[in-house]
């Protein structure tokens, strides 16, 4: 008997959070562990719904009819933050960001790349930079 199946194109999927975030019945599950992102897909989906396919930025998901298939997993290595080392982004996501954001905006005013830093470190770097002058003057007040 034919069932409604999830077909995911492994080559185009970038491993973002869209499909798992929009699935109204939580059939698609995403987890980040030990530097790897794991997305668990159901083999079949009987819901009258196209949310995941519509949400996918790469149009990597199709809902097709076919023979029953088992659940499957896609895994993505996470890129470590260049400052703190915490893995935070898939190579696919990074690639997409690199293509979407104009080159001149990918580095800061000092020519350093921010795109390879995790959001937390971006905040820290911004803070450190902003605090620099004040840090110097405040160190001088202690007597």
């Amino acid at each position: 008997m034919k069932k409604r199946l999830l077909a995911v194109d492994e080559k185009t999927c970038i491993g973002c959070r869209a499909c798992s975030a929009v699935c109204p019945v939580d059939l698609i599950r995403l987890s980040d562990e030990d530097g790897v992102r794991r997305i668990d897909f159901p083999g079949i989906c009987d819901e009258d719904c196209q949310e995941c396919a519509r949400a996918c930025p790469e149009e990597a998901i199709d809902l097709v009819f076919g023979e029953v298939q088992p659940e499957f997993v896609l895994s993505f290595d996470l890129v470590p933050c260049q400052r703190c080392g915490a893995p935070f982004v898939t190579y696919g996501e990074m690639d997409r960001l690199g293509k979407t954001i104009p080159q001149e905006l990918q580095t800061d005013a000092f020519g350093a790349s921010w795109i390879t830093l995790c959001p937390r470190c971006r905040r820290s770097v911004e803070r450190e930079r902003a605090a620099k002058t004040l840090l110097v003057s405040r160190r001088g007040t202690r007597v």
């Binding site: 949400a55 996501e93 954001i101």
Partner: peptide, 18 residues
Amino acid sequence: CTGCDLCVLACPFGAVQL
């Protein structure tokens, strides 16, 4: 919003959360 997280990753200041 699809909750893809790309905006979080695209903010140079880390000022976006999801």
